[in-house]
């Protein structure tokens, strides 16, 4: 089987979109925070918290959509903590973000262990099932690639459009972009810099948690330690790759998904010749190369990482 055959197979692209889905949520969440001027390195932990909270809520009987709501609220809560530390208190966004990642990850494991002290393998839930859309799902190629994904993938696509619309077509979006460029401009117009930034971080963190929830509620059916596995960090890189644009963020996430799906398939083809670690590494190497090419021209939000204090000008 040659490489070309992999690239045109429908199962390969279906896998690419499946892998991309949590990244789409995560990169949109990180993008909203950064557009408002705050880096959110809590993302890796918020993924874990969302994965844990959503799954546990379903297991406790909340239903799948109820589980997503719980995941989003959990993410929002960690986001609020990050926001309080970095916006009105103006602490280092790096330090606070890494702290949130460690806190959220550990709290997730802790909750899991204390709730289920005696299990050797986690209880399974019934996850989101592929949406079977009449006619469309039966189309060749496209039918399998797009129309047999779960509702969460569609939710991710919808979020791309929603975030784009809000950021580019609404007064709220203008205010969020302005607060990430020049907070003084927002303050001078009588809008609240703190309110906008805190709101953006909470909303962005809720989206990140949905990305985590996808792992336990759609890709798999239970919570495992270490299952986030660096996806949050990839999102931070993808935001720069996407130059803070939602459409490009979708593209970046799908590209990364494609690399990842590709390396799995390539491994089965030539795994005997090359150590498997090389393949596992490939998507990350590719994203570093893509970043080097794209990020040189990246236009960072001007006020990113810069705290703003009321009454100081």
């Amino acid at each position: 089987m040659d490489i070309l055959q992999i690239l045109i197979s429908d199962s390969f692209w279906a896998a690419a979109f499946r892998i991309a889905t949590p990244l789409i949520f995560g990169v949109l969440g990180a993008l909203i925070c950064e557009k408002a001027g705050v880096l959110n390195l809590g993302i890796e932990g918020i993924f874990a918290a969302g994965a844990m909270a959503g799954w546990m809520a379903v297991w406790l009987g909340a239903g799948l959509w109820g589980g997503l709501l719980v995941a989003a609220l959990t993410g929002g809560a960690f986001g609020l903590l990050h926001a309080i530390l970095t916006v009105p208190l103006g602490l280092s966004q790096h330090v606070s973000g890494l702290g949130i990642t460690m806190l959220a990850t550990s709290l997730s494991y802790f909750t899991y262990r204390t709730t289920l002290p005696n299990v050797s393998s986690p209880p399974r839930i019934v996850p989101f099932q592929p949406l079977d859309i009449p006619v469309l799902s039966d189309l060749p190629f496209v039918g399998l690639v797009l129309f047999q994904q779960t509702a969460m993938t569609w939710l991710a696509f919808f979020m791309v459009a929603l975030v784009w619309w809000v950021l580019n077509r609404t007064p709220l979006g203008m205010a969020i972009r302005a607060v990430g460029d020049n907070p003084d401009a927002v303050d001078a117009q009588g809008l609240s810099v703190y309110g906008l930034r805190i709101g953006a971080i909470v909303a962005g963190s809720a989206l990140m948690a949905l990305g985590g929830a996808f792992l336990t509620m759609s890709a798999f059916d239970a919570f495992f330690f270490g299952m986030v596995n660096g996806r949050g960090w990839i999102c931070i890189a993808l935001v720069i790759f996407a130059s803070w644009r939602p459409g490009k963020a979708l593209l970046g996430a799908v590209l990364f998904g494609a690399f990842d799906a590709f390396q799995v398939r390539l491994q089965t083809e030539v795994g005997a010749l090359v150590p498997s670690q090389v393949f596992l590494m490939a998507p990350y190497v590719m994203s570093i190369i893509a970043l080097v090419i794209v990020a040189r021209r990246a236009e960072y939000p001007r006020a990113l990482l810069t705290p703003w204090f009321k009454g100081q000008r």
């Binding site: 972009r177 302005a178 990430g180 460029d181 020049n182 003084d184 401009a185 927002v186 303050d187 001007r302």
Partner: peptide, 10 residues
């Protein structure tokens, strides 16, 4: 203001 309060990305 002497230093403009404009968002350059808008």
């Amino acid at each position: 203001h002497q230093h403009f309060t404009l968002a350059e990305n808008l």
